[in-house]
């Protein structure tokens, strides 16, 4: 799994490529958690290059979203493929995320605080 960090219009973006599963979830967690510092108000996780998110992976995303929203911030997902979206829908995870087609849309939404 490849994990890249970037910033766009002041919003932190984590781009995850590859499979987010039991083998990679710890690495992803180590990279994402520091971004969840108390002053983080918005975060975009881009899954465009992500083909599979396992149960543990979904739990990492949920934990990150809860941490950010617990401080009044927003975490948005972008570029989620249909299959992952479908799994998230069936297993209830979609209730906890705002999802956008691409990074620009996600950044625009969280930047306004309206995600």
């Amino acid at each position: 799994m490849d994990i890249q960090m970037s910033k766009q219009e002041g919003v932190a973006i984590v781009t995850l490529s590859g499979n987010l599963d039991g083998n990679t979830v710890n690495e992803a967690q180590e990279k994402i958690m520091p971004l969840l510092a108390p002053d983080t108000k918005s975060l975009v996780l881009d899954l465009k290059g992500c083909g599979y998110v396992s149960s543990a992976g979904l739990r990492l995303l949920l934990m990150a979203a809860k941490q950010v929203s617990g401080r009044g911030g927003t975490l948005a997902l972008s570029g989620v493929c249909d299959e992952i979206k479908d799994v998230m829908e069936m297993t209830g995870f979609s209730n906890f995320f705002k999802s956008f087609p691409d990074i620009n849309a996600a950044v625009a939404a969280v930047g306004k605080g309206g995600a």
Binding site: S54, S55, M90, T91, G92
Partner: peptide, 19 residues
């Protein structure tokens, strides 16, 4: 009975239905 059984997520799918 779970569409996500192949991913081992039947527990979440069943609970989501009940919810």
């Amino acid at each position: 009975f779970a569409a996500t059984g192949k991913f081992g997520m039947q527990v979440d799918e069943c609970k989501t239905l009940i919810k």
